[in-house]
Design a protein around this nucleic acid. Structure first.
Length: 671
RNA sequence: GCUGCUGUAGCUCAGUGGUAGAGCGCACCCUUGGUAAGGGUGAGGCCGGGAGUUCAAUCCUCCCCAGCAGCACCA
């Protein structure tokens, strides 16, 4: 006689099922409503197809659209498959590769037939239509286990070179599966999937864009077309998502930077920022803030050359490993023939070359090496608001976030082996204090040794453990701080701690970092005299908190949607008149505010107050001080604060006191 | 760097094989109005750069440059 399977449900009950039964059978046994609603199953915690038979006694939890996280993942994965099927149906000869779910949808990488150009945005509407047709056809998605040979034969017979390549390389011990869509299309996939395409909502997805992507993420491989879509459980969710995207676009720092007159970019200096008075005001406030922080944490600020002879960069190793990202200039008087247009300076063949620094570390080692350093002097913390240039790949440039000229809040800590953990721990706390002051929550990641690296495994073991220990001692190696270790992500010379900020749109950016480096002190022969009278190598910690002023300001703008905290706002208050009779009073109000250290402007223009309110609100001025005849007579101001509809009339002295208090940088507040 | 898309007034964008238009902004005039756009007049463009096709190119073709989205890169 056959043994019945014991299937335990989340409510504690146990159902006995015939061998070969599936989660779908259990759902049907419980009731028709659940049978209809179920889209997948968790079997012993693993997400599986509804139609995949149990392999023995099991814990079962049926998944429905109420389990949103699982449901979204399944739906997006299925959208990706339907996308691939649709593309092949419309464009026979298209090769398919991979198509995973993403955080808001899905994509699929395909290779268009040689007979046509890569797919473009114009192809998307037809593909969407075909996807809807496949969804409406409600094709069952059926799992089958295939042998490797079967798979390879199938893909080669179909001319699917990428799939065949992948099938050959799948791990030996893995069960290989395909999923049928109806009778006529299949894809190799680990699954799980929904029971049928009809479980998808045909109105809950939208193809959004196409882009190039390299096969297996390698630049040396053929480039495929990646078709992106956003996918949800229903139209309401899709619409909400599209609205969110519109809101996100409104706070794009490039758009706000122009609207608020903070900075501009132009092609003659692409990748380098022209800071306007208002934008540079933010910079100066940040710089003053960071100087106070670093002064208070035992750093000493230095300034080092922009240009150094390339021989110095050869010695540091940068000229060998980093030259393609460096700018070099000939050390000579340029000869230009003055025949006019098209004249180019001539570079003498024997010219000496200088390079503009792409980073500050070698120069800091050179400062460290001046004189003789005793172990008693360590740690030595050298800071620099270091302006660096890197010739980044052009496609990488992005507003303020990725530029070719940028200024780091850089510092290098030279210390002994024994001081590393304590220095890193102290840095964790400094970084925490800084990010908290801006209201940022952050994640800390530990990027571990990459495949290509310098140094022994023993050194790497130690270096990684030092960083890990330091974060643990700081009490930050936990989920509250998004603690995570990233294998293979480290620099070639050292593991890195990385601080990632999440902006209000949910994108993450790396800003802060600290790295323990034993390579550069060696290459540039930095040493200190130990207690034993012998020379020793210091460890060099590279660290930054803002990362770069450019990127940090970009993040601030987006995070606050341009409505910066008062201490950072370029213009903190505008005095706006209602009638020209109040001009004299307004000027006096402006004078007193300026004398109190408030960044203030006055608006005496011949415009209605409605117009002025609107304009300064759009310009995101935090406080509007409106004055008319009444205020002039009473010595008051009507304060309208950004984001509020009402205004508060108060004596001028009171308004000044309030603004001064609010404009105090967070690190200088008493409380 | 790769793939796709884009480049017209300071900004946002229409438009046409016969060298251009709107709104906002700007200047001037009228208006002195109590909390998100008062009215009028006017100035502004080598239609990203170069080559080609054509009687004629901002428009079509090719090459460059820059920007956007992604990929790769981010020592």
């Amino acid at each position: 006689m056959t043994e019945l399977l014991k299937i335990s449900l989340p409510d504690g009950s146990v159902r006995e099922m015939e061998p070969g039964a599936t989660p779908a059978d259990v759902a049907a046994a419980i009731g028709p409503g659940l049978a209809k609603a179920a889209i997948a199953a968790r079997v012993d915690g693993e997400l599986r197809d509804l139609g995949r038979p149990f392999e023995g006694d099991a814990q079962l939890a049926l998944v429905t659209n109420r389990d949103e996280e699982d449901a979204l993942e399944l739906a997006r994965h299925d959208f990706a498959h339907v996308l691939a099927e649709a593309v092949q149906s419309l464009f026979p000869g298209t090769q398919i590769t991979f198509g995973p779910a993403t955080s808001d949808g899905f994509y699929y990488d395909v290779k268009a037939p040689d007979s046509r150009d890569p797919f473009g945005i114009d192809d998307l509407p037809a593909i969407e239509e075909e996807m809807r047709r496949i969804i409406k056809a409600d094709k069952p998605l059926k799992r089958e286990v295939w042998s490797r040979e079967q798979l390879i034969d199938k893909w080669e017979a179909d001319g699917e070179a990428f799939k065949a390549e992948w099938a050959r390389e799948l791990p030996e011990d893995e069960e290989l599966t395909v999923y049928w869509s109806g009778e006529d299309w299949l894809d190799m996939c680990r699954g799980p999937h929904l029971p049928s395409t009809g479980k998808l909502d045909p109105q809950a997805f939208k193809l959004t864009r196409v882009a190039g992507a390299y096969w297996r993420g390698d630049q040396n491989n053929p480039q495929l077309t990646r078709i992106y879509g956003t996918g949800w459980l229903n139209k309401k969710q899709l619409d909400a998502h599209l609205t969110r995207l519109e809101e996100a676009a409104k706070r794009d720092h490039r758009k706000l930077g122009r609207e608020m007159d903070l900075f501009h970019l132009q092609e003659e200096a692409h990748g380098s920022v022209f800071w306007h008075p208002k934008g540079y005001r933010i910079w100066r406030e940040l710089e003053a803030y960071m100087r106070r922080r670093m002064d208070g944490a035992g750093y000493r600020e230095i300034k080092t050359p922009q240009l150094m002879d390339v021989r110095q960069w050869e010695q540091s190793g940068h000229w060998g490993k980093y030259a393609e990202n460096m700018f070099a200039v000939p050390d000579m008087v340029p000869e230009v023939d003055d025949t006019g247009a098209g004249a180019h300076p001539k570079v003498a063949p024997d010219a000496d070359w200088m390079a503009i620094k792409p980073m500050n570390c070698p120069a800091h080692v050179l400062v460290f090496k001046q004189g003789i350093t005793s172990y008693r002097d360590l740690p030595i913390r050298l800071g620099e608001m270091g302006c660096c240039h890197r010739n980044e790949p052009h496609g990488a440039l992005h507003g303020l976030m990725r530029v070719r000229q940028f200024t780091q809040d850089d510092a290098h800590i030279f210390c002994t082996e024994h001081q590393v953990v304590e220095e890193v721990r102290a840095f964790c706390q400094l970084a925490d204090a800084v990010y908290s002051n801006f209201g940022f929550e952050y994640d800390i990641k530990l990027a571990l040794r990459p495949e290509k690296r310098l140094g022994s495994d023993a050194d790497w073991d130690r270096a990684e453990q030092e960083l890990r220990d330091a974060v643990e001692e700081a009490g930050m190696a936990n989920a509250d701080y998004g603690w995570e270790e990233l294998p293979g992500e480290g620099a070639f010379y050292a593991p890195k701690l990385e601080w990632h900020l999440t902006d209000a749109i949910g994108r993450t950016w790396q800003v802060g970092t600290i790295q323990g480096d034993r390579v550069l002190p060696e290459r540039l022969d930095a040493s200190y005299v130990g207690e034993d009278g012998e020379k020793h190598r210091p460890v060099m910690l590279h660290r930054a908190i803002f990362g770069s002023y450019e990127r940090f300001i970009g993040i601030l703008i987006e995070h606050f949607a341009g409505k910066l905290p008062l201490w950072l706002a370029p213009v903190q208050a505008v005095v706006a008149t209602i009638v020209s009779d109040a001009d004299g009073y307004a000027t006096e109000v402006e004078r007193q505010l300026a004398a109190a250290g408030i960044r203030v402007e006055s608006d005496l223009r011949n415009e209605k107050i409605n117009y002025k309110v609107r304009e300064h609100s759009l310009a995101k001025v935090p406080h509007l001080l409106v004055v008319g005849n009444r205020e002039a007579e009473e010595g008051t101001v009507a304060v309208r604060t950004l984001g509020q509809q009402h205004q508060k009339v108060m004596p001028l002295a009171e308004a000044i006191a309030m603004l001064r208090e609010d404009a105090t940088p967070p690190d200088l507040r008493q409380s």
